[in-house]
């Protein structure tokens, strides 16, 4: 571990042709904190997220996780080192039960050991136990047998985070966890995130600045592919450049 930072990027860039969606980002996420990345539309948050989770290969720069260079590591091999992600657009196994969704996510940590085809899944007691534990934590136990696609949107968003949690990660990367949630459901999600922040490092991407103010330790504001401002929530809130960036979007 280097100086308590679990995730570090160095001069990270992602270019689509001539357009630099991420343009030289040095991001440092301190272990055990909730770190939010916010910014107006087109700031490069999602592109940055894709680089961090292995969805896109950065065109320049490097990514270090717990001191290890993971810049070119494919998405499925990031679970094993302790990174887990959620999706902005809910991405569940829609026709499978809530419990099976979580059990699969727990099994995913095993990687290729799940190629075992001569044993019953019932023997994977540790996976079932973890799925049940996470289900309890998410208040979804009563809906264990329901197909994920039949849950309410709010519950699907919660399950989305639960899927990441089942990978027993050191760090959770959440892509707009409240996206599409009703105003009444949002506190459930922010409550869950701040609770998760007690035993995980959490990094989240968020469009709506208001949501992250109360739960984040550090906020990074991005604009045009670069880091505009970084600091504690109140510092960021008071910064004139941040206001300008958000107002610029509104204008």
């Amino acid at each position: 571990m280097t100086d308590g930072y679990i995730l570090e990027t160095q001069a990270l860039a992602l270019a689509y042709g001539g357009f630099r969606a991420v343009d030289g980002v040095d991001l440092k996420v301190r272990e055990g904190t909730i770190h939010s990345v916010i910014g107006p539309n087109g700031a490069g948050k999602t592109s940055l997220f894709h680089c961090l989770t292995g969805g896109r290969r950065p065109t320049e720069g490097s990514i270090l996780f717990a001191g290890e260079d993971i810049t070119r590591r494919p998405a499925h091999r990031r679970i094993g080192i302790g990174m887990a992600r959620s999706f902005q657009v809910t991405s569940l196994f829609q026709n499978l039960s809530v419990r099976e969704n979580l059990r699969l996510a727990a099994q995913g940590r095993d990687g290729d050991r799940a190629l075992t085809f001569w044993r019953s899944v019932a023997e994977g007691k540790a996976h079932l136990a973890l799925a049940d534990e996470v289900m309890e934590r998410l208040n979804l136990t009563a809906r264990a047998g329901v197909a994920a696609g039949d849950l309410s949107h709010g519950q699907q968003r919660v399950l989305e985070v639960g899927m990441a949690l089942c990978g027993r990660p050191k760090m959770l990367l959440l892509d707009e966890p409240t996206s599409g949630m009703g105003i009444d459901d949002i506190p459930v999600m922010t409550g869950l995130i701040s609770e998760l922040g007690r035993d995980h490092t959490v990094m989240l991407i968020e469009h709506n600045m208001g949501i992250v103010m109360s739960i984040s330790h550090t906020i990074t504001v991005m604009s045009r592919g670069q880091i505009l401002v970084e600091g504690k929530p109140d510092e960021v809130c008071a910064d004139a450049r941040v206001r300008a960036a958000y107002l610029g979007e509104a204008a």
């Binding site: 989770t53 494919p74 998405a75 499925h76 091999r77 679970i79 094993g80 887990a84 992600r85 999706f87 991405s91 569940l92 196994f93 699969l104 996510a105 995913g108 940590r109 095993d110 990687g111 290729d112 799940a114 899927m163 089942c166 990978g167």
Partner: peptide, 8 residues
């Protein structure tokens, strides 16, 4: 999603 939860 299957890839995201760790399966190759």
């Amino acid at each position: 999603r299957a890839a995201a939860i760790g399966f190759d």
